Amino acid sequence: MLRSCLHLKVCLGLAIAATPLAAAAQDCPDWRLVAPKTIEASATSLFSRYQTPLIAGGSVNLTSCLSMPGIGYLAEAPDLSVEYDGQGDRRLLDIRVQSDCDTTLLVNLPDEQYVYSDDEDGLNPVIRISAAQTGLYDIWVGTIEPANCAAILMIETFDES
């Protein structure tokens, strides 16, 4: 499957960026674009929370992307890609943002479906994926207002009860 091949994704991202039609297709978040950072993580390794600082927001107004859920402003390319190994453990994958501004969260799942969150924990978004499957998760951290702000992205797994 295309989504599980990170190296092919990188090649496709470069090929798409080089085509003249790419400019028209860049108006919405695009999982085919390469994130500035990619990590490999497993259900076991994420029992210890992974966190990374980043700048939330971007120039893309998610409201204009009719095929995607949510509102807010974010970048075209994901802020982070996670090559996740569920290890067959069916753990809950918890993705959240902490910031002093009103942030949003958009995740493209391994099956290429998008999930969105806003204001789950005060003004901070949280996405919980039950029995998270192995594969590539592309993550965008956006803002409700067009201004960018500092944020911390946190990813952790939990046993499902």
Rank of each mutant, 00 (worst) to 15 (best):
Y116S: 01
V82L: 07
P53R: 10
P110L: 06
E145R: 00
R49G: 04
D79N: 14
G72T: 02
D159G: 10
T104L: 02
N148F: 04
S48Q: 13
P146M: 08
S99T: 10
L14T: 13
D119W: 00
P110Y: 00
K9P: 01
A15D: 12
S81P: 00
L80G: 12
C11Y: 14
Y114D: 07
S99P: 03
N148T: 06
D119Y: 00
Y137K: 05
K37H: 12
V107H: 02
G58R: 06
M1H: 12
P20Q: 09
D121K: 08
E83C: 10
D79Q: 05
A25I: 10
F158D: 03
I39H: 03
C5G: 12
E76C: 11
L21T: 14
A15N: 14
L8A: 15
L62P: 10
N124M: 10
L80H: 06
E160L: 04
A43Y: 01
C149N: 01
R3E: 11
C101R: 07
E76Q: 15
A35S: 10
Y50E: 14
N61S: 12
S99W: 08
P36I: 05
N61L: 13
A75T: 15
S81G: 11
S117E: 02
D100R: 11
N124Q: 08
S42R: 01
G13W: 14
P69H: 03
M154W: 02
D119T: 04
G142C: 01
I155V: 14
A56K: 02
L66A: 11
R128Q: 11
G86S: 14
E160V: 15
G86W: 06
D102Q: 04
D111R: 07
M1N: 11
Q51S: 11
P53Y: 07
A147Y: 11
T143W: 03
T52Q: 12
K9T: 10
L6N: 13
